[in-house]
């Protein structure tokens, strides 16, 4: 029972029990955000290093707030200020950090497997805050926490994930976590952004058009289109993408009447989602952000509570 890992590297190998344990604990941590004094001493004396090799204000801040609300000492290292720019290898950077005896290292890196590389090398717990297009487990878990506020996370629920699946760690982590809980997942991407062979490895339904994915969906999860990938010949223009794949009010009507709309942020308004939908009553995008802190507190608590 429970969650007894040293690291959280992905959702791919998490069991349903582990996922539910984290979600239930996160549920309890939500309450702390409503207190006048938003701090508990659970991780007092523990050190959390946020090691971000990719810019990410939002995830880093979320981890930092989560750590501080648990009374841990949170230290931020970003690539721009670290020795990485001086050509130091990841192993050397990590060995140096290990020498300072942190309890938890949160890492964001542009290459797949960077968190795994570190986890195999250091004694501290490692949380993967995004490795390339592979995994971003805390994002998926906070998405599940948000879904659970409105829907029952169980077989029978249908989640549509629409956007650049191929390059999305958010999509992958969500696919693993949702399918582990028996939720029906429909994905839709431009054919240039759909990884070949995805149906072979995950029990998901791949839809050609967003309309197909939206029909009957209880949850609509839009992915960020990375505009900087424009030079990669993946789609002809932002305008074309928005017309065919963007979520607008008319398309949203295809989903269940009580469907909720999610986006991991940051949004490209008017591209993958219209402002009308993003700010509409069915949008739970800001709840995702609040839940991110509670979920990350739960993860830090479970990993940080086991040091000797």
């Amino acid at each position: 029972m429970g969650f007894k890992r040293k690291d959280l590297l992905g959702t791919r190998d998490l069991s349903a029990v582990e996922i539910r344990t984290l979600l239930e604990s996160a549920e309890s941590f939500k309450e702390i955000a409503e207190r006048p004094l938003k701090k508990v001493p659970a991780l007092r004396g523990k050190t959390v290093v946020n090691l971000f090799f990719e810019p990410s204000t939002r995830t880093r801040t979320s981890f930092e707030i989560a750590a501080k609300r648990l009374s841990a000492d949170a230290v931020n290292m970003s690539a721009a200020t670290s020795s990485v720019v001086k050509g130091e290898s990841l192993i050397d950077t990590v060995d140096n950090i290990q020498a300072m005896a942190p309890d938890i290292v949160v890492i964001r890196h542009r290459y797949v497997g960077a968190a795994h590389l570190i986890a195999g090398r250091i004694g501290a717990s490692v949380i993967n805050a995004g490795d390339g297009a592979n995994e971003h487990p805390t994002q998926a878990l906070l998405d599940l926490l948000t879904i659970a506020e409105h829907k029952k996370l169980e077989p029978g629920l249908t989640v549509a994930i629409i956007g650049d699946i191929a390059h999305s760690r958010v999509a992958r982590s969500n696919i693993w976590a949702l399918t582990t809980l028996g939720v029906t997942v429909k994905v839709c991407a431009p054919p240039t952004m759909l990884p070949r062979g995805l149906e072979e490895i995950a029990e998901i339904c791949v839809c050609r058009r967003p309309e197909e994915a939206l029909v009957g969906a209880d949850v609509v999860m839009m992915l960020r289109i990375q505009l900087e990938r424009q030079d990669r010949l993946l789609f002809p223009s932002i305008r074309d993408y928005a017309r065919i794949f963007g979520l607008n009010r008319r398309r949203l009507e295809l989903a269940r009447p009580d469907a909720i709309v999610m986006h991991p942020g940051p949004m490209n308004r008017g591209v993958e989602i219209t402002s009308e939908v993003a700010d509409g009553e069915r949008s739970v995008i800001l709840n995702q952000v609040s839940n991110g802190v509670a979920l990350r507190m739960a993860v830090l608590f479970f990993l940080g509570g086991q040091g000797a």
Partner: peptide, 18 residues
């Protein structure tokens, strides 16, 4: 590309070599 374009590249988000 880093690995064969197939089940591993799809599952792990590693750029595929067809």
């Amino acid at each position: 590309g880093l690995v064969h374009e197939g089940v591993i590249s799809a599952a792990h988000g590693l750029a595929g070599i067809p």
